[in-house]
Amino acid sequence: MTDWKKIAPLEDIPRLGSRVVEIEDGSIAVFRASDDQVFAVRDACPHKNGPLSQGIVAGHTVTCPLHNWKIDLESGEALGPDEGCTNTYAAKVEDGIVYVQL
């Protein structure tokens, strides 16, 4: 079963940035967009497993630091002509605290 897990206060994640959360089988990246919406995706690019958490965020997308694929944070899908998808997790902010469903 999946649960809402408490991650951290929203202000611990920089706007247009992310934090890495370590889980049992790898890492997830939790992003905070400029509109303060949060997104959680597996921290591995569908291309060659690049750490998406390290990319540049714009709108609801992140650009992978290794070879510049652009990933949609809502769906985890690669945008433009690139094809591939990374796992996403539900994420929300309540009373200034970020939760992710794991």
């Binding site: 920089p14 706007r15 247009l16 940035g17 060659k48 497993n49 690049g50 750490p51 390290q54 990319g55 540049i56 965020v57 630091p65 290794l66």
Partner: peptide, 19 residues
């Protein structure tokens, strides 16, 4: 603005293929 820098400059090291 660190969030407007490529990761190498934000983390002050060269990112490698394994992260």
């Amino acid at each position: 603005d660190p969030q407007s820098r490529f990761i190498n400059e934000r983390a002050h090291g060269n990112i490698q293929k394994d992260g």
